[in-house]
C-alpha cells in the first residue's frame, strides 16, 4: 500500500525528516508517534504530494509520489493538522465542492454526501455555516472531506487536536470504524490514543525513525523484567511474606514498597519471559497470609517512548 524509501526532507538546514524507511500494508491503522518537531507533519505532507522530498521517494498504491502525483492524490484523503476549512460555506455545500474537486461523478454526489454525513455524525448540521459550528463539528467536517470519494488511504494529522475528552472518544471510535475498511495513517503525541486505535506504531524523533512495531511487541521488547505487585492485609505475620515469595522459583528480586495504612505492598521482579503470578499466589495463600490483590505491571507507552528515545541518544 505504502512503501517509503530513504525519504528525507530538509528545510534549508533544518531537518524535517532524515532517511525514513517503512511500509504500510492494506488495512493497517498506522500510528505516527513523536514529540513536537519530530517530523510527523512533514512526512504526511510529502505522502500527500504537497511537499516534494529532498531525497528518496515513496510509492502509494503502486504509484510514485514524484512521477505520478495525480494518481496518488486520487487515492488519498487528507486531514491537515490545522484542519483548514472554508468558514463561509455551508456543510453540504462544502462537501459538494470537495466532491467535484475529487472527481466524484455528478450523479453520485448526493449519495456520496449523504453517506459521508452519516458516517461522520453530521446529520444535525448539514445546512449550517461551517464557521459557526463548534470545534468538534469542524473536526468531523475535516474528516468528512477526507472521506469524500472513498479513498483507499486516509492520512489524518492529529485528528483529535484541541477536542474535549468526550469528542476525543467519539472521534477515536470513528477512526477505529474507518480502520476496519481502509488503510489509515494518523499522527499523535498522545500515546494511549495511538495504542488504542492503531495496529502498528512508528516512533520518530528529530526526523529519524526510532522504532516500528505493534503496540504489544513494543511493550514486550522493552520489558527488562516482568514486575508483579502483591498487596496483603497488615498483620503480625505479614513480614514473613518477603521470605515466602523469595523462595518461589524464578524470582529475581523482592522489595517492599510504601503502602496505605493497614496494608503491605511487595514488588517482585522475575525473568521477563516468565509468568510467576500463579506460583506467587499459591505460595502466599498456602502460608495463610491474607492476600488482597496481585497484578502484573504494564509498561506504559510513555515509558516505552522515553526509553526508546534515551536509548537512541545513548548510541
Amino acid at each position: 500500500m505504502i512503501r517509503v524509501e530513504n525519504l528525507s526532507k530538509f528545510y534549508g538546514i533544518t531537518v524535517g525528516v532524515r532517511n525514513l524507511n517503512f511500509s504500510v500494508e492494506r488495512g493497517e491503522v498506522l500510528g505516527f508517534l513523536g514529540p513536537n518537531g519530530a517530523g510527523k507533519t512533514t512526512t504526511m505532507k510529502i505522502l500527500t504530494c504537497y511537499l516534494p522530498p529532498t531525497a528518496g521517494t515513496a510509492r502509494i498504491c503502486g504509484y510514485d509520489i514524484l512521477e505520478n502525483p495525480m494518481e496518488v492524490r486520487k487515492r488519498i484523503g487528507y486531514l491537515p493538522e490545522k484542519n483548514p476549512l472554508y468558514m463561509d460555506m455551508r456543510v453540504t455545500e462544502y462537501l459538494e465542492f470537495v466532491s467535484h474537486l475529487k472527481g466524484v461523478p455528478t450523479r453520485r454526489i448526493d449519495e456520496e454526501i449523504g453517506r459521508t454525513i452519516g458516517r461522520c455524525g453530521l446529520e444535525e448540521v448539514p445546512h449550517r455555516t461551517i464557521g459557526k459550528l463548534s470545534k468538534g463539528y469542524q473536526q468531523r467536517i475535516g474528516i468528512a472531506q477526507a472521506l469524500i470519494g472513498d479513498p483507499e488511504l486516509l492520512i489524518l494529522d492529529e485528528p483529535t487536536l484541541g477536542l474535549d475528552p468526550k469528542q476525543i472518544i467519539e472521534i477515536r471510535q470513528l477512526i477505529k470504524n474507518l480502520g476496519t475498511e481502509r488503510t489509515v495513517i494518523l499522527s499523535s503525541h498522545i500515546l494511549p490514543e495511538v495504542s488504542q486505535v492503531c495496529t502498528r506504531i512508528i516512533i520518530i524523533n528529530q526526523g529519524e525513525l526510532v522504532a516500528v512495531d505493534t503496540p504489544e511487541n513494543l511493550r514486550k521488547r522493552l520489558k527488562k523484567a516482568s514486575v508483579i505487585h502483591v498487596k496483603l492485609r497488615e498483620s503480625t505475620e505479614a513480614h514473613r511474606a518477603g521470605d515466602i515469595v523469595s523462595a518461589v522459583e524464578g524470582i529475581m528480586m523482592v522489595k517492599e514498597a510504601p503502602s496505605e495504612e493497614g496494608t503491605m505492598h511487595i514488588i517482585i521482579e522475575a525473568a521477563p519471559d516468565r509468568d510467576v503470578r500463579n506460583k506467587v499466589a499459591f505460595a502466599i495463600v498456602e502460608s495463610g497470609l491474607p492476600l488482597l490483590e496481585i497484578y502484573s505491571e504494564e509498561l506504559s507507552l510513555e515509558d516505552i517512548f522515553l526509553q526508546l528515545v534515551m536509548e537512541e541518544e545513548a548510541h
Partner: peptide
C-alpha cells in the same frame, strides 16, 4: 493564510 490552499493542492486538481 488559512491553509485551505494546501488542502486544495492535495486534491486531484491541476
Amino acid at each position: 493564510k488559512l491553509g485551505t490552499f494546501e488542502l486544495l493542492l492535495t486534491y486531484p486538481v491541476s
